[in-house]
Design a protein around this nucleic acid. Structure first.
Lengths: 110, 110
DNA sequence: CGTTTGGGTAGGTTTTGACTTACCGTAAGT
DNA sequence: ACTTACGGTAAGTCAAAACCTACCCAAACG
């Protein structure tokens, strides 16, 4: 799976609360860096650094617009995370069900 | 949404690579702490601490079996994360589509 | 009982990473 | 050309957190 690395990078990136906040705002609609920095409790350079991480994780991309860089979500990265989570979700459900059944069986035959 | 806090806690917890590794192994099948510690590059107490975080994030649960504690996935926590991601994924797709359309329109009418 | 096995917690160290200020490049406006 | 707006990078600080060893408790087994 080529997307596996991307999914894990995405999870690492979204581990930080500030980065999650930035991600949510970018997801709402594409924004420039100054717009993101306004309304956040951190400095503009901090936002730039977070955006760099999000970009390297494949979660966002940017397009130039004059001196501004408009950041938007990269659907592929988000999709990769979603797939990873879905896979584990399904696997976990199955494993958990089997585990619960075994427990129940053990209990019954005591 | 009562699950929102749970989803964010889950993302924070899975931000750490070691914790992700532990989570994946527990997802594969329920395991005891010693079994998890074997094959990981960290000590057993470290695994215990990670499991505590995962548990507080609602991602795993444990049942006692003699002196062993068998950890398994908590489907509810994983489900909450999945929902959060799905919601943002859909929103981001829509916003991105609109953004791309606008860009295209701008280009066309140059 | 003593011993072994499993596992949580305490205390301390060390690494990671989020944040700041200062600086520099670039594009647009006057 | 000068100035202003936008934004990335550098260097350094500081707090969070990942990790270790040492310790203690509980359950099973001889």
């Amino acid at each position: 799976m080529a997307n596996l690395k991307s999914a894990l990078a995405g999870l690492s990136a979204l581990g930080d609360p500030t980065r999650r906040e930035i991600f949510e705002r970018v997801a709402e609609r594409p924004r420039a860096v100054v717009d993101l920095a306004r309304g956040l409790p951190v400095s503009r350079p901090a936002v730039s650094q977070h955006l760099k991480v999000l970009k390297e994780a494949g979660l966002v991309r940017e397009v130039a617009d004059g001196t501004r860089r408009i950041y938007h979500i990269d659907p592929r990265g988000v999709g990769a995370m979603r797939e990873w989570l879905d896979r584990h979700w399904r696997g976990a459900l199955a494993a958990f069900q089997k585990f619960a059944d075994d427990e129940h069986e053990k209990e019954r035959s005591k």
